[in-house]
Amino acid sequence: MFSLKKVKYKHILDIDNLNIKKHKVTCIVGESGSGKSTLLRLLNKLISCDSGEIYYENQLLNTIDSVELRRKVSMLPQLPVIFPGTVRDNLLIGLKFAEKLPVGDEKLHYILNLVHLNKKLDEDSQMLSGGEKQRLALGRLILLDPEVFLLDEPSSALDEETESIIIEKLVAYTKESNKTLIMVTHSKKVAHTYSENIIEINKGKVVNFKEV
């Protein structure tokens, strides 16, 4: 699905060869500052590499329209972005950005349930806790129904129990609907329990690629 060849970005990333498979759960691990978020940003085309090539479905990333790509390969940032307004506003704004049709409250409740967020749609989103904001942002992304989910530490602000519940539901959801899931995580447990491939990054280089 994604393949990277001799990709360099500043002095941050230097990836010789990397393939990420379709319909699989791939975890990216590595110590802080190793370049994990930068890798996701490259795949989302929020930034472009200085040299080398990145392909998505055998098509060179540079030749794909960025906005179209991001509607298929959507990303959850490390720090959740919450826009002013209610929980409902925050869920629907993603659909607006991606120019998709709005959905009814029933669907929104289903999403809130999926990300294990027990809040009313009319609640002010600024009042949510850090972990709740993270789940709200995740819910917004799921609502968009992209082909590929790029998640940058989706459970970093969650307790272990909630983390397991969410990741489990997420993995089940992506399997059911034939999606590809690529996520950065610091949790060894998450990486080993749920992922089919593990990419380990150290100082900008892929030091280990494991199929589980």
Binding site: N44, L46, V67, S74, L76, L79, P146
Partner: peptide, 17 residues
Amino acid sequence: KDFVEGALMLGATPKMA
């Protein structure tokens, strides 16, 4: 900046973001 990028990541055009 984070709002603008947050919107772009979801497929917003620069204009919307």
